[in-house]
Design a protein around this nucleic acid. Structure first.
Lengths: 235, 235
DNA sequence: GTCAATCTTACGGCAACCTTAAATTCGCCC
DNA sequence: GGGCGAATTTAAGGTTGCCGTAAGATTGAC
């Protein structure tokens, strides 16, 4: 999941105009994975089948009350839900939030407000658990600080890019051991392991340019032919 | 002021039942410094005399409209005000908030909701127990005094705006470390951080205009691509 | 020597970032 | 309230540099 706008959104409302309005606005804002449903029944099956990342739903639906719907959804999913409601009653609001709704917008609303709240919920719920601190270690005269994404060498500070940092982290976690190319790709690019072999080599080359005296005869980041790479930390 | 529940609360409502209900609930929740008034006139004198920390007041009072009352109060006090209203109209809400009300609860309400909002307002208004002294530090030829919100450079004094100050503070507290854009937004704008990315950039740009020789090639407030920003203090 | 694996370099796309200006909101004084 | 200047946000277009691709060179195993 690269971007917040890659999230899948389900819109549940029985009024076609509202559905289209919301969908249109969200698309204009850059969301592109949008589902829609007009009633609770189909909403429920979309939730099961497509597993959207968030649902925007009207409280009043033709076949089922929104609060019952969220209860049903909670049986199998903890996806965030943002309610739309024409009523301004506080009981509804509290009930909704109490049942696990994440926010609540009163109709009529400005598209922008819906947007703000949607983004807020997505950020809150899917906020990446950032590891507090990343390691810092020495390679001969080179000091590698992954926290600062920086290599220190001879008074110089050389910045590391995110990919370089990710690769070095994976290698450092397995220092002295061989890390397969697949494992490295997995660590940096995620599960969909396409043919990143070549790309990986290029990145390794770039890392070597930053942490090796002679990048062509590496001392620290070694190639293990046929298997992968290995980071040698000890002197 | 030790605790949030040591705050003095004024309840203004002409219905004795409502007054008692709110007061009872608040006492049960641990508040103990509670004043009550049945009309705008006495509310005003309580505000003058006892200087409550917050007022909960009905919009409809026998002698005066709540909005006029808040205007009168604003003449001599900036105490937070939380409105109760039987009308659910947004105009009222906006008007109230625009006039300096801090929140707004629609009757009928659940005591718990009033409570939540009351606490929220108190926290928001009184939490930033402004740290007495803010740091002052040197960036090359630039002296940054966050206390005075001023940059000194070549006999010149350049004022910092509140946002600029907030950002610089957060950066200074993490000097030498990378501060993510999210963390910066959070520090200055609060939790619901969305769409501030661009705004942040603009502010960074303006800060750079004040503390960098060449804002396009910053020496102190550096960009860390893909991560955030970093303040380099040491020379 | 041959072949496959790995290295090396260069280049273009694209997202992240920058920059500016205009629009809007905020805060203060009257 | 209304008006004014400052502060902030929005918007639009420009720039930069990370990253992925490809193509040719080199290395190591057999």
């Amino acid at each position: 999941m690269e971007h917040i706008k890659d999230r899948k959104i389900l819109i549940v409302d029985d009024e076609p105009d509202i559905r289209r309005m919301i969908e249109g606005f969200l698309r204009k804002e850059g969301f592109y994975r949008i589902y829609a449903a007009a009633d609770g029944g189909s909403a429920l099956s979309v939730c099961r089948a497509d597993k959207p990342d968030i649902a925007i739903m009207d409280v009043m639906l033709p076949d089922i009350d929104g609060f019952e719907l969220i209860t049903a959804i909670r049986q199998f999913s903890s996806m965030p839900v943002l309610f739309l409601s024409a009523r301004g009653e506080d009981e509804d609001r509290l009930l909704g939030l109490g049942l696990g709704a994440d926010d609540y917008v009163v109709k009529p609303f400005l598209p922008r407000e819906l947007m703000l709240r949607l983004m807020a919920v997505l950020k809150r719920v899917y906020a990446p658990a950032v590891p507090e601190s990343l390691p810092c270690f020495q390679l001969g005269e080179y000091k590698i600080d992954l926290e600062l994404a920086t290599v220190f060498h001879n008074e110089e500070e050389i910045a590391l890019t995110p990919k370089e940092r990710g690769l070095l982290l994976k290698l450092y976690e397995n220092q002295g051991r061989i890390v397969t190319s697949d494992a490295l790709c997995q660590a940096v690019w995620g599960d969909d392991a396409y043919s990143y072999e070549n790309t990986l080599m290029v990145h390794v080359r770039r890392i070597r340019a930053k942490i090796e005296q002679d990048p062509s005869r590496p001392k620290y980041l070694l190639t293990v032919r046929g298997l992968g790479y290995k980071l040698v930390v000890k002197e």
